[in-house]
Nucleic acid binder design. Structure first.
Length: 417
RNA sequence: GUGUCCGUAGUUCAGUUGGUUAGAACGCCAGGUUGUGGCCCUGGAGGUCGAGGGUUCGAGUCCCUUCGGACACCCCA
């Protein structure tokens, strides 16, 4: 019986990992450009934290979490999303006392026990940001812009932004009641899933994929048309800022997020290059959550974006990306003496900042040359007894095949040019 | 969790109505005379045919179970 990676998890091997690193670099660059600072939280937390923040009734909490008991019988859970942990840290370390506005970002693995499919893993990776302490619509839009800047920065072209407002505790209850009333009228004709939603979470009936559900709810009231003054103003500001920054977007009155904690703005970025799981990123405002988790009343906004989905789109849009690490120099050697010399010299050059590779398998020069070629080393130098006694060798530039004499002492200087 | 399809060398795949030592391409290794890559040529290594059970004289080929994968539902990043 051979060991295999757990269902729904995968290895990112050399060759693919370079694409990830490139993406991560862009994420960090964009985050820093908006002055977000990185925060790293543990991969697991008390189960209660997620139940409280995400919502007991959500699919995530009710059936998708990796929950276990440790040896002291405490219930722990591998984090299914990033926001809860960030807010926990924010509250725990009183970050709100250090400055009125906190802007942080994260990048890391998340876990959800779902059936794997295109763009859906049990361990997946997200990057995201949270801005705590301000109600400004500018921050709502900033979240969208960060995600869009990352995609643009990577040369991704296939994506679309959709926004909506899910209201607040002042206007949502009344709307919900009204919607439920309307839905009840057609309830028996809705799909079985939607029938359950009418009671559990009526808002979600609206974004059902079922064609028949869509038809039946065609004239159902939308939250965005029943916002209180505050929410309406806020939503207008978001729209206006998006226009000012010349950002393409569309208002989707049926857009609902899966997590319970959102208020006001909700948004989603999807890509037609993905499969059925087409969301690249999603986020929104959560003005009640910090308080809910035991902190002082603090407004917040955030978003999360899927790394593997980003990579999938990136591979489709940018087939030209095939970079790999290339050694600057490959030192081929002939016998035990020269091999040791090569080892020492390599160390010297590596310390000086060069990527240097050599043969560890006692191979023939021919094989070593093949290896150097495969690694796409920029230069190769063959060291034998002749070279060691004369102190000079020929440096071969692999791309052109040209060789030039070099003094071994001067190797470092020559490589620098 | 439900459904559909799939599971043969490192990789992508072939494998006739079940019938002798399971093949190809690419990749890998070694050579093509004295210390030099890419192209080309020659040779080589590498598979308990996902795993377990069953039917059969005989199973990679049929049946069951199980594990895994792909895709969709659900949900979401």
């Amino acid at each position: 019986m051979n060991f295999k990676s757990i269902k729904g998890t995968r290895d990112i091997l050399p060759g693919e990992v370079e694409t990830w690193q490139r993406a991560e670099d862009v994420v960090r660059r964009v985050m820093h450009s908006y002055n977000y600072r990185e925060i790293r939280t543990p991969v697991f937390e008390q189960t209660e934290l997620f139940a409280r923040s995400i919502g007991e009734l959500t699919d995530i909490v009710s059936k998708e979490m990796y929950t276990f008991h440790d040896r002291s019988n405490e219930s722990l859970t591998l984090k299914p999303e990033g926001t809860a942990s960030v807010l926990r840290a924010y509250i725990q370390h009183n970050l709100g006392e250090q400055s009125p506005l906190t802007k942080v970002y994260y990048l890391g693995p998340m876990f959800r026990q779902e059936r794997p499919q295109a763009g859906r893993l049990r361990q997946f990776h997200q990057f995201g940001a949270e801005a705590l302490g301000s109600q400004s619509a500018q921050l709502d839009v900033e979240m969208m812009l960060i995600a869009l800047d990352v995609y643009q920065g990577l040369g991704i072209r296939q994506f679309a932004l959709a926004i909506n407002s899910v209201g607040c505790q002042r206007c949502r209850p009344a709307y919900k009641q009204r919607l439920t009333y309307e839905l009840t009228k057609v309830c028996d004709r809705l799909s079985t899933e939607s029938q359950a939603r009418v009671k559990q979470n009526p808002l979600r009936v609206l974004d059902s994929k079922d064609e028949n559900d869509r038809r039946l709810t065609k004239n159902a009231p939308l939250m965005k048309d029943h916002l209180c003054d505050g929410c309406r103003e806020h939503f207008k500001s978001v729209e206006s800022l998006l226009r000012s920054t010349r950002t393409d977007f569309r208002i989707d009155g049926r857009l609902v997020r899966g997590l319970d904690y959102y208020t006001k703005t909700a948004f989603e970025i999807t890509s037609p290059a993905l499969g059925s799981q087409d969301a690249l990123a999603g986020g929104g405002r959560y003005d009640l959550l910090v308080q809910e988790l035991g902190g002082k009343p603090t407004p917040g906004v955030g978003f999360a974006a899927g790394m593997e989905r980003l990579i999938m789109v990136l591979k489709k849009d940018r087939k030209d990306l095939t970079d790999r690490f290339r050694p600057d120099l490959f030192i081929a050697s002939l016998d035990e003496t020269t091999r040791e010399w090569a080892f020492v010299k390599a160390r010297e050059l590596r310390t000086a900042g060069f990527a240097v590779e050599l043969d560890y398998l006692d191979r023939s020069v021919k094989s070593q040359m093949r290896e150097a070629n495969r690694l796409q080393a920029r230069f190769v130098i063959v060291i034998g007894e002749r070279e060691l006694t004369s102190g000079s060798a020929r440096l071969k530039e692999m791309q052109t095949g040209k060789e030039a004499p070099v003094m071994l002492e001067a190797l470092e200087k020559v490589l620098k040019t």
